[in-house]
C-alpha cells in the first residue's frame, strides 16, 4: 500500500524532518532572542569607552558571525549535492541563501550605524567591511544564478559551484582585521584566548548568538519545506500536504 512512496522517500523524509525540527528552532529562537536582547539593552552595563552605543554589539556580532557560518553551511550543502548527486542538498543550499543574505545585510547595516558614532563615518572601504560586502554579493549571486536557470538541476549545479568557490572569502573576512590595517576592531570572542569582554556583557551576547543561530535554522527549515514542495509539486504526497494545509 505504501509502495508508491518509496521512490519519493528522500524528499518526503527531508520534509518530515523539517517539520519535526522546526518547533524546536522556533522556540529556541524566540526565547533566546527575547532574553538576550532584553538583557543586552536594559541590564548589561554600559561600555566604559563607548557608552550605550556598544549595545549594538548584541545584534552586530551575532549577525556577522552567522553570516559567515551560514555561508559555510550553504557551501557544505552545495558540496554534498555535487559529490553525492543529491538534489535535496541543492534544495537546502537555495533555502539557506536568502537567510544568510539577510544576516549579512544586518551585519552591514548595524556595523554602519555603529561606525558612525564611533569612527565618525558610516562606511570605509577597508578590508573587513569590503569583504563582508562581497559576502552579500556572493549570496545574491548564488540566488540569482539559481533563478536564472529554468532547469533547476542545472541551476543547482551552477549556483553550487559559485557557493563553493566563494568559501575563499570566509577566512579573508575573519582574518582581515589581522592581515590589514583596518578601522575595525579585532576579534573579541572568536580567538584562542580568553574573551576580552566582561562576563556580564558576554552572557547576553552568547544568548543572542544562540538566538540568531536558531532563527537562521528556523527560517531555513521553512524555506527548505517550500523548496521541496516547489520541486515536487506534482507528487501525490505534496498534493496531500497541500490539501491538509488548506483545511
Amino acid at each position: 500500500m505504501w509502495k508508491w512512496l518509496h521512490p519519493y522517500a528522500k524528499t518526503e523524509r527531508a520534509y518530515v524532518l523539517c517539520n519535526t525540527l522546526l518547533p524546536w528552532f522556533v522556540v529556541t529562537a524566540v526565547l533566546s532572542l527575547s532574553i538576550g536582547t532584553l538583557w543586552g539593552l536594559v541590564f548589561a552595563p554600559a561600555d566604559y569607552q563607548q557608552g550605550d552605543s556598544f549595545r549594538i554589539i548584541y545584534i552586530h556580532v551575532p549577525s556577522a558571525l552567522l553570516s559567515m557560518s551560514t555561508y559555510v553551511a550553504m557551501a557544505v550543502a552545495a558540496a554534498v549535492g555535487m559529490i553525492w548527486q543529491w538534489r535535496t542538498a541543492y534544495m537546502a543550499m537555495i533555502a539557506i541563501a536568502p537567510v544568510g543574505a539577510v544576516m549579512t545585510f544586518i551585519a552591514l547595516v548595524t556595523g554602519a550605524a555603529w561606525g558612525k558614532p564611533m569612527w565618525g563615518t558610516w562606511w570605509v572601504w577597508d578590508a573587513r567591511l569590503t569583504s563582508e560586502l562581497i559576502l552579500l554579493f556572493l549570496y545574491l549571486g548564488v540566488m540569482a544564478l539559481y533563478s536564472a536557470f529554468d532547469d533547476k538541476r542545472q541551476g543547482g549545479k551552477a549556483a553550487g559551484v559559485m557557493a563553493i568557490v566563494g568559501v575563499v572569502n570566509i577566512p579573508i573576512i575573519h582574518y582581515s582585521v589581522e592581515w590589514w590595517n583596518t578601522l575595525h576592531q579585532g576579534a573579541t570572542i572568536t580567538k584562542f584566548d580568553k574573551p576580552s569582554i566582561a562576563p556580564e556583557m558576554l552572557w547576553p551576547l552568547l544568548i543572542n548568538l544562540l538566538g540568531f543561530a536558531a532563527f537562521v535554522g528556523a527560517v531555513s527549515l521553512v524555506r527548505m519545506r517550500n523548496e521541496i514542495i516547489r520541486r515536487e509539486i506534482h507528487r501525490p504526497w505534496v498534493v496531500l500536504i497541500a490539501k491538509q494545509a488548506s483545511k
Binding site: 554600559a46 552605543s53 549594538i56 549577525s63 539577510v102 547595516v109 548595524t110 524555506r223 517550500n226
Partner: peptide, 25 residues
C-alpha cells in the same frame, strides 16, 4: 546615553529585516 538614534536604527532595521524574511517565507 545620547546614542539613541544609532542604537534604535540598528535594532529597528534588524527587526524589520528578520520579520520581512519570516513573512516572505
Amino acid at each position: 546615553g545620547g546614542y539613541g538614534f544609532f542604537v534604535w536604527l540598528s535594532f529597528g532595521i534588524t527587526a524589520a529585516a528578520m520579520v520581512a524574511i519570516v513573512i516572505e517565507s
